[in-house]
């Protein structure tokens, strides 16, 4: 045994050279103006944005680029301005948004009925899970050709596809949120004698609000994408049959339609202007509305930290 004993390595004693005077730098120092400015998040992000715009402008001006393929930023800006002021881009935005809102409201209503039914009975719960499992993976836009057959070229077909894109994610998330409500909270509700709808509104909905909100957000994201795609397909359908636009004629189409039409007419700056409008609407809805709801509910209630 003693053979295997580990011999500790003993370091020899030594004495260091004399240590010189330490050079102490600034222990505390105010940041320079430059550093302080570049510490502001908004400033940095804004300068990234400006750099991108300048790069775009320079690339499209100096590079040998066909104006029709890739317009300059300034041309796009001018197009956006003139579209807003003279060509009623706001009408197109409103056309898209009103369809979206209609579809969203009806879709959330239907999802609510399905979920209430799903909470009450085991059969309802089974029906809901089977339907969502089947239909959630189906992109709503794939139903557009059938919707066009059933409802014709028009708002009804678009609203039908929108409904489909909203109902399943909202129902799925709300239902799984309800399933995850802790037994303690359920028992509190039953203790107060709550049953049926009051039980859902007073216990299940507040407790499952984070998942409900997630469902609403996913539903909105899918609906917005579906709407733009549906309007593009409509544009294609009309160009295909070279028929009249009917109810969608004149300035009646939405944003997707504007993008498609301007591309067909080689008005590329206007295509970019349409894209800007789509981005703006998205940012406003996402950050203005959903962010606010989140701040006022789940963040205030301490259910979500970040």
């Amino acid at each position: 045994m003693s053979d295997h004993a580990v011999q500790p390595y003993l370091r020899e004693e030594f004495e260091g050279d004399e240590i010189g005077e330490a050079v102490v730098g600034d222990v505390e120092r105010r940041l320079s103006v430059w550093e302080r400015i570049s510490n502001i998040d908004a400033v940095r992000k804004f300068s990234v944005l400006i750099t991108l715009v300048v790069a775009w402008e320079l690339y499209s001006r100096i590079g040998d680029i066909n104006e029709l393929m890739f317009p300059t930023f300034s041309a796009t800006g001018t197009a956006l301005y003139s579209a807003l002021v003279y060509e009623g881009l706001m009408t197109n935005v409103w056309n898209s948004l009103s369809l979206l809102l209609m579809g969203y409201a009806i879709g959330v209503g239907i999802a609510a009925v399905l979920v209430v039914f799903g909470v009450w009975t085991r059969f309802g719960s089974d029906l809901l899970t089977t339907l969502t499992a089947m239909l959630n993976p189906l992109p709503a836009i794939a139903l557009l050709p059938m919707a066009m057959l059933w409802f014709g070229l028009g708002p009804a077909a678009i609203v039908f596809t929108l409904l489909h894109s909203i109902i399943w994610p909202v129902a799925l998330n709300t239902h799984s949120g309800f399933m995850g409500v802790s037994e303690t909270q359920r028992m509190v509700g039953r203790n107060y004698g709550l049953r049926g709808l009051p039980y859902i509104y007073k216990i299940l909905i507040p407790a499952a609000f984070p998942s409900i909100l997630t469902g609403l957000r996913i539903g909105w994201a899918f609906a917005w994408r579906t709407l733009i795609a549906a309007e593009l397909v409509f544009g294609g359908q009309v160009a295909d049959t070279s028929g009249q636009l009917g109810a969608e004629g004149g300035n009646a189409g939405g944003l997707g339609w504007i993008i498609f039409q301007n591309q067909m007419e080689n008005q590329t700056p206007y295509v970019f202007a349409g894209l800007f409008a789509v981005i703006l609407v998205g940012i406003i809805l996402e950050n203005g509305i959903f962010r606010n709801i989140e701040d006022r509910t789940i963040r205030r209630w301490g259910m979500q930290v970040a």
Partner: peptide
């Protein structure tokens, strides 16, 4: 990091399908 967050904030709300007309052009 700034570049990425600016780009995602810009492009995340933009439905990819709306770029299709441009993609067809390019």
């Amino acid at each position: 990091s700034d570049f990425l967050s600016t780009m995602t904030a810009m492009f995340q709300p933009l439905p990819a399908i709306s770029l299709l007309p441009l993609a067809m052009l390019w």
